[in-house]
Design a protein around this nucleic acid. Structure first.
Length: 418
DNA sequence: TACCCGTGGTC
DNA sequence: TGACCAAGGGT
């Protein structure tokens, strides 16, 4: 793998044959995805951002709802940040939503006044990097540029490298060059999609289906039956074990949420007071359940977060000096969850406050969830609305009852806490 | 450069 | 249950 080797050594079988086989397969076997019908530049942009590190099946419903709510860049730019985040709730990587919204506003208020018509223009927008700018320019604008995501890198690497021992010789710059050379001049967008589709369906990271591959006859790794060794596996990074408690504080027909950390949270930090669930940049801009701080899980299996730790804070609320059943939340259960580099053990506590306690203190809780028929609505700063206008962090749904308590069934939790 | 940022599916 | 990974970008 030397950079001065002839092109046909870099491109086994030659680019024309490779393109022809792959595009024919793509035309026949490509998935019918919502953003592939009635293509638009805007819709392509939204899909590319949502698909970053996120699987297709997860993205589909989010994309459809997003497009229905914000059908064009003007609608998106005119939205409140909270509305955009709410449509992202559950999708993860929430910075994408904030940057998408910011980019829309830059587009609308910028000199151009419309979406960029070249790759460089896209690259200037927040949240659009080397890959996404190439994908949008080729798929949405028909410009002949590569779009090298992890799928494409894997496909190209296996195509040109037969064994793991020479992987070190294939530098990133070589891969970039190969990627740029091989883009189909007539159908650049279809080409980039085809390479990614092959990587997603056939040339998978684990257990590649070489027997079903349309370009197997040209593929060095496939021919050598070494595809599962290429490219080299990444070095895993360690997970930090963390334990935390969540408080489901029910009052009347409501569950308490705390406002985004960027807002004015008057609850004093320190002993006993609930905090926002975000830690060092996680869940920025989202509302969330009151939480204990995240602390190292040094005592596995032990209940080191008794619900009583919130007692001082609870007793500071008006009318909560002494509750009939005591001021200590009860442990409802626990679940495990992983967020990027953290492995969490989450213990969920519940406490129902008597309905005659007055809790409409905007300086403590700025939003609560209530439960009308047909959905969840919120009161926020005294105004009624629906949850489809407020982003909040949803803990992952599992089949465990406890997890349901803190997710889509917050309503149930409100009624189940006695 | 190596981290950091979420979530859900798969084996 | 846990490791791996998916249409990456920002710092």
């Amino acid at each position: 793998m030397k950079p001065d080797l002839p092109v046909d050594v870099f491109l086994p079988g030659g680019p024309d044959r490779f393109r022809s086989l792959l595009l024919s397969w793509f035309d026949r076997d490509k998935r019918l995805l919502p953003w592939r019908k009635n293509r638009s530049l805007y819709g392509t942009w939204i899909s590319e951002v949502m698909l970053q590190q996120t699987t297709v099946t997860v993205v589909v419903p989010y994309w459809e709802k997003f497009m229905a709510t914000f059908p064009d860049v003007h609608a998106l730019a005119a939205a409140e940040p909270d509305e955009v985040l709410s449509l992202w709730s559950g999708l993860g990587y929430y910075r994408r939503a904030r940057q998408l919204h910011q980019a829309a506003r830059e587009v609308v208020s910028g000199a151009l006044g419309k979406l960029p018509d070249n790759r460089e223009g896209w690259l200037d927008l927040p949240g659009v990097g080397p890959y996404a700018s190439g994908a949008i320019a080729s798929i949405g604008l028909g410009i002949r540029v590569p779009a090298l995501d992890s799928n494409a890198r894997r496909v190209l690497t296996r195509w040109v490298v037969s064994e793991a021992s020479v992987l070190d010789d294939l530098r990133p710059s070589h891969l970039e060059r190969i990627g740029a050379l091989v883009v189909d001049p007539e159908r650049p967008g279809d080409w980039n999609e085809a390479v990614m589709e092959l990587g997603a369906l056939i040339c998978r990271a684990s257990s590649p289906r070489c027997e079903a591959c349309p370009v197997r006859s040209l593929c060095r790794a496939g021919g050598n039956e070494t595809a599962d060794l290429i490219p080299a596996p990444r070095i895993p990074s360690g997970k930090t074990r963390v334990r935390l408690g969540l408080l489901v504080l029910a009052w009347r027909d409501r569950i308490m949420l705390m406002p985004p950390a960027s807002g004015s949270v008057v609850v004093p930090a320190g002993s006993g007071a609930p905090v926002r669930p975000d830690v060092s940049g996680l869940h920025v801009g989202l509302w969330g359940l009151p939480s204990t701080p995240w602390l190292p899980d040094l005592h596995r299996g032990r209940d080191i977060w008794p619900g009583s730790i919130w007692r001082p804070w609870l007793e500071s609320l008006p009318g909560v000096e002494r509750l009939p059943g005591g001021n200590d939340p009860v442990l409802l259960g626990s679940f495990r969850h992983a967020i990027t580099r953290y492995r969490l053990v989450v213990q969920v506590y519940g406490l129902r406050l008597p309905s005659n306690v007055f809790l409409d203190r905007k300086d403590v809780f700025q939003m609560t969830i209530s439960r009308p028929e047909g959905g969840i609505s919120v009161s926020k700063g005294g105004k009624q609305g629906t949850l489809a206008g407020t982003g909040f962090y949803r803990w992952p749904s599992t089949k465990q009852p406890v997890s349901k308590l803190v997710n889509k069934s917050l309503v149930i939790a409100a009624n189940s806490i006695v």
